[in-house]
């Protein structure tokens, strides 16, 4: 067992878990940077995710929303290969095809709190690292809460 530092990024890099075809074949899922959606005055949210060249991952890999609702998401493919994105959305998943060096948008309606995953469903892009997370914080509305005193959480 080697020493573990508190620097997660350094640990991933040292282990070869921060890119393509180092220790792993692809990018370890759930790694990458963390980003926050911008909340607009009307309560909708806005964010951008990008596929960097030869990284086969989404940046940020984890996108945090302050609450559920409408997210205007811009997706950019800076890679020199074609990818796509299948995204969670109330009613039906959304799909967008993203050829090399392309930019598109998706309007997502999601409820929180909780984690949603999305990915590029072509070839094995998802397994290689193109699986990203959208994380929604907050609480359910008061009328949906149980009638009981506040309880301890982990």
């Amino acid at each position: 067992m080697t020493t573990i530092s508190n620097d997660r990024s350094a640990e991933l890099a040292a282990a070869g878990l921060d890119g393509q075809n180092k220790l792993t074949l692809g990018r370890l899922l759930g790694t990458g940077t963390i980003g926050h959606a911008e909340e607009l005055p009307d309560g909708t949210m806005r964010a951008t995710v990008r596929i960097p060249e030869d990284e086969m991952c989404w940046e940020p890999g984890i996108l945090i929303l302050p609450h559920g609702g409408t997210l205007e998401l811009t997706l950019i493919n800076d890679d020199k290969n074609t990818h796509c994105s299948v995204l969670p959305n109330i009613g039906d998943n959304l799909v967008i095809w993203m050829v090399n060096h392309s930019k598109g948008t998706a309007t997502l309606n999601l409820q929180g709190p909780g984690i949603y995953w999305y990915g590029s469903a072509t070839g094995n892009d998802e397994g290689r690292g193109l699986t990203g997370a959208i994380v929604i914080g907050g609480e359910v509305p008061p009328e949906a809460k149980l009638d009981r005193p506040a309880q301890p959480r982990p």
Partner: peptide, 15 residues
């Protein structure tokens, strides 16, 4: 060059 316009994501059931 400018990005290629990938358009707007559509419901999967449209395909």
């Amino acid at each position: 060059t400018e990005y290629v316009d990938a358009g707007q994501a559509i419901p999967l059931s449209q395909l």
